[in-house]
C-alpha cells in the first residue's frame, strides 16, 4: 500500500486512476490507502459498490471521487453519475473502469491488480500515458 501512498503524492486535479482487477484483488484496499493518504488516516472509506460513488473533499475546493462501477450495465449510466464533472474537478479513482467503455478518458493511469503467488500476495501492473511518466519518475516508480 506504499504504492497508493506514493501515487497520492503525485496525483492532482483532473487525474483519472483506473483500478482494474478481479473481485478480491484489493482494489478497494488500494483506494482506501490512497484516500487516507490524502484525507487523513482516520478517514472512513466505505465500499462504494452500493452507492456507486463516494465523494471526499480535499483542500482548496478540490474533490476526490471514488467510483465503483461494478453494478453498471451500460456505460451511458455512468454519465448520469456526473462522471465528466468529477473528471474535470478533481481526482477520480475508478474501480471496474471496464464498465465505462469509451467514456474512460484516454489520459489515465491504470493500476491492474491480480493474485500473486500466495493468498496474501498481489501483483500490480501500472500502465500510464506519457503525461504520467515524468511524475511517476519523481516517486521512483
Amino acid at each position: 500500500m506504499a504504492l497508493a501512498g506514493a501515487l497520492s503524492r503525485i496525483a492532482r486535479a483532473g487525474d483519472v486512476i483506473a483500478l482494474k482487477g478481479d473481485l478480491g484483488t484489493g482494489k478497494t484496499v488500494f483506494a482506501r490507502a490512497f484516500i487516507r493518504a490524502l484525507c487523513g488516516a482516520e478517514t472512513e472509506v466505505p465500499s462504494p459498490t452500493f452507492t456507486l460513488v463516494q465523494i471526499y473533499d480535499l483542500d482548496d475546493e478540490e474533490t476526490l471521487h471514488h467510483f465503483d462501477l461494478y453494478r453498471l450495465e451500460d456505460p451511458e449510466e455512468a454519465l448520469e453519475l456526473d462522471i465528466d464533472d468529477a473528471f474535470a474537478d478533481g481526482i477520480s479513482l475508478i474501480e471496474w473502469p471496464e464498465r465505462l467503455g469509451s467514456y474512460l478518458p484516454r489520459q489515465h493511469l491504470e493500476i491492474a491488480l491480480s493474485y500473486g503467488g500466495s493468498q496474501k500476495q498481489r501483483s500490480c501492473l501500472i500502465s500510464a500515458t506519457a503525461e504520467w511518466d515524468q511524475r511517476l519518475a519523481e516517486v521512483s516508480l
Binding site: 473481485l23 478497494t28 466505505p46 465500499s47 459498490t49 452500493f50
Partner: peptide, 18 residues
C-alpha cells in the same frame, strides 16, 4: 460498530456473482 470495508449484503451479492 460499523463495517470497515464491505457491507454484508454486498458480500452476499459478490459471492453469488463469483
Amino acid at each position: 460498530g460499523t463495517t470497515i470495508d464491505d457491507a454484508l449484503g454486498e458480500a452476499f451479492d459478490k459471492t453469488a456473482k463469483m
